[in-house]
Write a protein that binds this DNA or RNA. Structure first.
Lengths: 211, 211, 211, 211
DNA sequence: CATGAATGAGCCTTCATTCAT
DNA sequence: GATGAATGAAGGCTCATTCAT
């Protein structure tokens, strides 16, 4: 897992407080600039200027644009963690669980839309970030696959479905819709999306109606 | 529809056979180079060289890289046309119809994977192509929405679903899976994908089992 | 005199009527384009397009931009001929003669302002046209010098002045003022200019008041 | 006045000694190259080479050729300041004052002939420098107009003349003659020019002979 | 460590001129 | 003669990266 991380962690971590401050300022600046101009159009000099440091100082902390982007994404890791189907047996029942997961996912995606757009752009351009995105996506898919398998085991989901493939498809459905809505800007009320996705999931998995 | 096309029409169309040949050679060369190097890394000079003409000749026919990409995508329009749910009432029944559509879609996507990857990359970078992709996608979504509505009218699909939203979600599910498989290279046998997608669609729409 | 003409006359004069027509169209087009875009920014292709002929046809008639400019200036020679102090003894008296000359000069300059601006621009850039302009200017200066000498001989002008130098200075005064007014666009009513110039000439030459 | 200056002020002034040195070297080099090759034929790379720096360094200090030309002209402003009719009442009398002014003007023009030629060339091509030249010229004209008005007030100059127009004409006469002589290279001994111009001014203004 | 300037390879674009049809 | 496309040399400009202070 660590192996797939673009920049496994900068070899030279700041040794002094001042160094750490500069580094942090650069990472924050990079996020601002990347979100504003896009990764490709952002120039090292812009990032440094935005951070209020000299251009040369950039190279004290990062080898190149990719490396600082990795740092940006790492710093935002928490924010970007995708909510997923809960693993705990839930007193709410499967449908409510799915609905909660979809709502949480969309809300999270919406909140981090700029970052998601950035990750998407950069994935289109650089294999390393394509791998990073794939890895995060895989984690999400795997969790949902486990949830599906559990429902099947409980006799609550269509046993004909391959949990892994079904999860790939249905998880992709959710993230694609979130992408289209919050990154591409296709108009649709969030609540409608939640309801539609939930109904499609419930139907698709053949989850029996609540008794 | 024409309005959304990136390069509405080349200002100066070739007036001689030779001009048309050179232009065609450039378009073909551009496709080769773009698919090989990616749009961003492709240089005008490479395209010209690949076409066997002088660098300057490129500008006789195109204003910039975007314009020739538009020509490439236009030339490949036919190939890239997405199969979709048939509009004819089908003696095979809805499930078979859906299966056929999914199979055709995946096959088409697979065949044009490089081009799809290119379009994806370029959409991540240039609004105009983002719009083009969205437009093509919309056509696909709209047709599927009509098919869903028809099934509902026939009492063959879950009436609780908004056909438009359901189509956005389910169509996105298919294309995302195709993307993940044929562009990102996630391993999965095509037949499994067809079966999974079909079952998910059938379930999601609550299409009744064949009598 | 012919020696100073930039392009002594195109070696290949048109042999057919069609050739002559194309050539004439090119010259007219060149004047339009040069006056509109300036000589430096005008492109051969623009001139040909304006003339409604193919780019290549330009070279059937002219070797380069300088040559067609020479043709433009040649064709406009008549229009641009500077009026000057009459050589005939004038029953109006010297002052009226000077006034008439100044009025005519300014009117002519004003009418051909765009062409004068063009000649000026091109003189700043190309020695050959610098020479052409100097040559035309010399003719004007020489005639005025002769007129001054005649007035001196008649006891009507300050004998202390070198007629040649005085003419250079006073003729330059007139053309510079015309340039500033009609090319640079400094605001001043033409009649005021005529009166001022005339009074300055009369004073400067010490022409006695009309009895 | 500052408003009309082509490049109001370089956005990024050098912050280190080294930067200032390079900038100065570039300005000096530009003057050399422009005077040698003319503004239009001068290439950025030549200027950088002449300054002994890399081509790219040019852009550290200037946006384009126009901007460095503005710097060249600014740096030479002092040298190019036109002497003019003194404003102090002069014990020498008006005629001597005029002679002194003409002599000084011609001497200054001669000394800076190359720069004047450069300014002239560039004014023919770029509006911004046309404005700069006009502005400098206006200052010269205005001072002479004031001097003429003063002489009129003292009863020492033809009251029928509009001081402003007379100054435009007579000042233009002087600068045109200087241009023809020192830039175009028309042969004439400087002392003759001074004497002729002075006599013409004195006559034109009807300055009474020294008692 | 920070600074800010220097470096120069690299790509884009223009357009006068040539030439096959 | 006319056509319109091909040619390719020439310069402009950018910006990641290095480095002396």
């Amino acid at each position: 897992m660590t192996a797939a991380t673009p920049a496994p962690a900068p070899a030279r971590a700041p040794r002094t407080r001042r160094g750490a401050e500069t580094r942090a300022a650069l990472v924050a600046a990079a996020r601002t600039v990347f979100e504003r101009d896009g990764f490709l159009d952002a120039r090292i000099a812009d990032v440094a200027a935005q951070a209020g440091v000299a251009t040369g100082s950039f190279y004290t902390h990062f080898a190149d644009k990719e490396e600082i982007l990795a740092a940006v994404l790492e710093a935002a890791r928490e924010e970007m963690l995708h909510p997923h189907l809960s693993e705990q047996a839930d007193e709410l029942g499967p449908a409510a669980m799915i609905e909660a997961a979809n709502r949480a996912y969309l809300a999270s995606y919406r909140k981090n839309a700029k970052l998601m757009a950035l990750l998407d752009q950069v994935a289109a351009v650089d294999v390393r970030f394509r791998r990073l995105r794939a890895q995060r996506s895989r984690a999400f898919v795997a969790r949902n696959a486990r949830a599906i398998a559990r429902l099947q085991a409980q006799g609550l989901a269509d046993p004909a479905l391959d949990p892994r493939q079904a999860s790939r498809a249905l998880s992709g459905m959710v993230s694609r819709l979130a992408y289209a809505t919050y990154v591409l800007g296709e108009r649709a009320p969030s609540e409608t999306l939640v309801q539609t996705l939930t109904r499609l999931w419930v139907n698709a998995l053949r989850i029996p109606p609540q008794r």
